[in-house]
């Protein structure tokens, strides 16, 4: 039985940083994600939490579920506050008021606080190049206030502000592609991850922490309440989303694209959408349209990964080794 020692719990931190007794719904995917992320990072961190589900259920007033330094801020400025914390730490360390050590500054926000309300703060923090990790827990609507649509809601989904009916098919617009927008900021590390793949999640979070400069992680957090799915299917839904290409798992490390899960032929979309009550009203022709578009998007992603591989091959031919993963930081001009 020695070989079985590589099982999952032995790779994770045994300490629990997110205590039981929080008020999340049954089968909440966001909580699974938070637990795994905190276990991956460990104690040396300061967490900035924007308003949203994760903040509401973890800290009803006289209690808190967090075992780590935690700041709650408004919807729009989690990235701004995190960048301030990082700047303060840097200054205090330079002045010798704090001992020098690796402290991870992390901001956690929902998809509404990332894609809609906190977008300019996020963009600014990424552009300024603070050494921080921004985590978006994407449950694809404003679940905290009662399932209103956000710009991260997928096409055709039913929410309370995009109800299906005779004149409407649910959400009218396509999901905003946030990881690509962040990759366009040319930051060192962007990745999409899903708590259904714990190994992949832990590796990516650790990479995001060790990278010098801003990192952005996009987590798919399945929400049984808002997605109208059975609570037991939470983890499976995350897997189906990755296998059907709706939520591809990939990373952009210093501009190099890698697809972490390429199933070859994508799984039929019906498997993924069929479990969820929010897509119940869709007709076969709508499904066809969504499938076509998902496949086109995935093909685009594959093209980018192929481009990376080609550049690597060219570099290897020229220098005899692949391009270095860590690009040296450009010297800041003194003002």
């Amino acid at each position: 039985m020695e070989n079985f020692n590589v099982f999952v719990p032995r790779l994770l931190d045994a300490r629990e940083y997110f205590s039981a007794g929080h008020r999340a719904c049954q089968g909440c995917g966001e909580t699974v994600a938070i637990r795994q992320i905190l276990k991956a990072v460990g104690r040396n961190m300061i967490l900035v939490n924007a308003t949203g589900c994760s903040e509401i259920f973890s800290s009803p007033f006289p209690q808190t579920a967090w075992h780590i330094p935690w700041i709650h801020v408004a919807f729009e400025n989690s990235a701004a506050v995190a960048s301030g914390v990082e700047a303060a730490l840097k200054t205090l360390e330079r002045k010798g008021r704090l001992p020098k050590r690796e402290i991870c500054v992390m901001a956690i926000a929902g998809d509404g606080a990332t894609a809609d309300i906190g977008f300019q703060a996020l963009s600014g923090a990424m552009e300024r190049g603070h050494n921080m990790v921004y985590v978006c827990l994407d449950n694809e609507a404003y679940m905290n206030t009662g399932i209103q649509r956000s710009s991260s809601t997928p096409f055709g989904a039913m929410t309370t502000t995009s109800p299906p009916g005779r004149l409407s098919k649910g959400q009218k617009t396509w999901k905003k592609n946030l990881p690509e927008i962040m990759a366009a900021h040319d930051i060192p590390y962007v990745a999409t991850l899903s708590p259904s793949y714990p190994f992949d999640l832990v590796r990516k979070v650790k990479r995001a922490v060790e990278v010098e400069g801003p990192a952005y992680l996009h987590v798919l957090a399945v929400c049984p309440t808002g997605w109208r799915s059975p609570t037991a299917e939470t983890i499976r839904l995350g897997r189906l989303a990755a296998e059907s290409g709706v939520f591809p798992l990939y990373e952009v490390d210093h501009g190099r694209y890698t697809i972490n899960l390429d199933p070859g032929e994508l799984r039929p979309l019906k498997d993924y959408l069929g479990i969820q009550g929010r897509f119940r009203h869709l007709k076969p022709e709508d499904l066809e349209y969504i499938e076509e578009r998902v496949q086109a998007n995935f093909e685009k992603l594959r093209g980018k990964a192929r481009m990376t591989a080609r550049e690597d091959r060219k570099d290897r031919k020229k220098t005899g080794r692949p391009r270095p993963r860590q690009v040296k930081k450009a010297a800041r001009s003194k003002k």
Partner: peptide, 15 residues
């Protein structure tokens, strides 16, 4: 000041 004095005391609440 509405200070929460103990970290992780949500476990007092049994769900």
């Amino acid at each position: 000041g509405a200070v929460v004095e103990e970290p992780g005391n949500a476990s007092e609440y049994l769900t």
